[in-house]
Design a protein around this nucleic acid. Sequence first.
DNA 1: GTTTCCCGCCACAGT
DNA 2: ACTGTGGCGGGAAAC
Length: 441
Amino acid sequence: MDAAAAAGPSSSAAPAAAARPSSGAEPSAAAAAQPAPVAPRMQLLQAPLLGAGGAGSGSGSGDARACRHHAYSRKQKSLGLLCSKFVALYDREDVETIGLDDAAKQLGVERRRIYDIVNVLESVGILVRRAKNRYTWLGFGGVPAALKELKERALREMSGSPVFPPMEESSTANLSVDEDDEKLEDADEDAESEKLSQSVDNTSDKPDAPGCRLRSDHRKEKSLGLLTQNFVKLFLTMEVETFSLDEAARLLLGEGHAESNMRTKVRRLYDIANVLSSLNLIEKTQQADTRKPAFRWLGQAKRKQENNTMIALPTARPNKRAFGTDLTNFDNKWGRLDPTTEDKAKLMQGAGNIVKTFERQLGQGNRSDFVYGPFHPAVAKKQESDDHTVRQKERKTIQDWENLAVSFRPQYQNQALNDLFGHYVEAWKSWYLDLTRETSS
DNA sequence: GTTTCCCGCCACAGT
DNA sequence: ACTGTGGCGGGAAAC
């Protein structure tokens, strides 16, 4: 492969293809000669990426006056900016559905970019997939519900309550949680549930459980949408101010992360972070201690105007959050903590938070909205009493952790959760050890 | 240098 | 076979 070509921003040749590991079989075939027509990147460059109201881009189907080289500017083409434009374009009362082709054309970008945006927007409830090529715009009004749901799901995942209905969307009913207002809006949940109803289980370390796994899960479990949700869950459940992207990647990947794996994950997180910050859900800052770039959760989705002013969130829209939107999306991978992570204090904080979660679920807290699913931990009741012990001496002894672990672990209906919980416990133990060592010396 | 992240190839899924 | 989706990582812009 001659590849490696100097592929500047304007050279089209397929550099990427070169070193691609390409999971599949025929490795060589890939090289399929690229006609390399008219520098596509240049075409895009020309496209106006028109902002808000702006009408259709002129560049219809890229023709080749592409050759004048305006300074190529990445900034003008960032996903974040594109997202703002996307939102500006569709965040209107009268917008109901969105066609991907249309969006791509309007914004003067290739389809591929629209997928990126749409996937993360869907993850935070701004739109839902209706059908091939079709999305329904829900708007920012859908965000709070989506976040709430995400949080609840995260908590459930941590506690071991079942998160997914038997497999068919129809049975969402038994979903225990009283998602107050998530009505099954109209009849077409089908489409969206199709997409994210991945009871994603595990990657490698598990053969496969009975019938609960789609074959496409493998692909889905790495999807940008899922990653977005898991990223968000990090903020929603760990009471941690900021996350740098590689911290997040590490947390989300778990151990055994190959370096390249890590890099890829971080690249994706950059994509996601850019979109989320353009929605004003997070913002870029620096970590207090290290000064490393990091992201802080804002949680107030707003539309960011070109000039950086915000459009207040239109709380109005009776967020018709369709239940199907990934309610069943269940990924054990998220939150796998790596005990070797250096930022213990931070994670300790998160751990404390998780403890609170357990307490809450043991009936201590005031979260009356939490309901155990069918797999209500048998020991939970009994444990209610001994449990303020646990609370009060949150950091008292490792024994506590182990007891807690023992009482819960067997109740997990799902190996993945079991693992996840195990990770937490292991991690806490080691942090606790370190902590006590430090403090006692 | 390092960090950020755009871009488009191409595998896989759906029709 | 064809089309829609979207993972993925090269490598260049930005810092």
